[in-house]
């Protein structure tokens, strides 16, 4: 039997009626644990859909507070949340949507000293970070811990997403071996981003997570999907494992976590 109450069966009935999901799939969602790193543009829609879908245990890593400039795309927060911790604001919204789920707030910045301990608590990781140093830290940690990771980024009218299964499929470094040269890639704050692009890509991340948990369909492994809202086009690029990848390739040169410097002047690792 499934451990779902009458209210839950009713709440998730549009899932359960899908033959590919059914009661068994919904139970898998309830038993699953997912960590979303960042409660911003990508994390907002991802967290909302994971909560609504009934993922039983969701963690949020976020040390920032809600700013008025966030509200154009970070739809899990409201005007009344400005000045409040994003992790708390997101957690409260999720519990209002679905009181049956458990939400952990990790109000801290990820570092090479705490990332293993945090990601070990969850089965699947969703990357919604807002900077490259953390993006590479998350990728490397997930490869080393053989965690499933749904990676994504947005800028201006574009987005990208790829799913990664530990050391079994291509990782972010297989495609983007090193962070971009300092100063070459603007942030959304500098170059802007169409708010709904975050919604599209973050929702795709949630979709990938729900597929991974239920076993439905084919995850975006060894493929990279680029979204261009300007022309409303998706462009899929095959991205098989790169044997030269420094973290998951045949001759690995990164065997310990690397934290890139945050300054604009240097992207060199601060320590091996």
């Amino acid at each position: 039997m499934f451990n779902l109450s009458e209210e839950e069966i009713l709440r998730y009935s549009r899932h359960i009626i899908l033959s590919e999901v059914g009661g068994a799939g919904q139970q898998k969602l309830k038993d699953a644990s997912v960590l979303v790193i960042g409660a911003g543009g990508l994390g907002s829609p991802a967290l909302l859909y994971l909560a609504a879908a009934g993922v039983g245990h969701v963690g949020i890593v976020e040390d920032d507070i809600v700013d008025i400039t966030n509200l154009q795309r970070q739809i899990i927060h409201t005007t009344a949340d400005v000045g409040r911790p994003k992790a708390r604001s997101a957690s409260e919204t999720m519990k209002q949507i679905n009181p049956h789920i458990e939400v952990d707030e990790h109000q801290q910045r990820l570092t090479k000293d705490n990332i293993f301990e945090i990601i070990d608590m969850y089965g699947i990781i969703v990357d919604g970070v807002d900077n490259f140093p953390t993006r590479y830290l998350v990728n490397d940690a997930c490869v080393m811990k053989k965690k499933k990771l749904v990676e994504a980024g947005i800028l201006r009218f574009m987005g990208l997403i790829m799913s990664i299964s530990g050391a079994e499929t291509a990782c972010y470094r297989c495609v983007f071996e090193e962070p971009p040269p300092p100063g070459t890639v603007p942030t959304c704050a500098e170059a802007g981003v169409l708010g709904a692009v975050a919604g599209v890509v973050g929702t795709l991340q949630a979709t990938e997570v729900l597929k991974m948990i239920t076993g439905v369909g084919k995850p975006l492994y060894n493929r990279l999907l680029q979204f261009d809202a300007d022309e409303l086009r998706f462009h899929e690029v095959k991205a098989p494992r790169n044997p030269k990848c420094p973290v998951c390739g045949d001759n690995r040169t990164i065997t310990e976590l690397v934290e890139y410097d945050y300054t604009c002047e240097s992207q060199a690792p601060s320590s091996p």
């Binding site: 911003g40 990508l42 807002d130 980024g153 800028l155 890639v185 680029q226 690029v237």
Partner: peptide, 14 residues
Amino acid sequence: DFLYYMGGGARRQP
């Protein structure tokens, strides 16, 4: 294929 770096929304590198 061009594969674009897309970081995120940081106002500046933290």
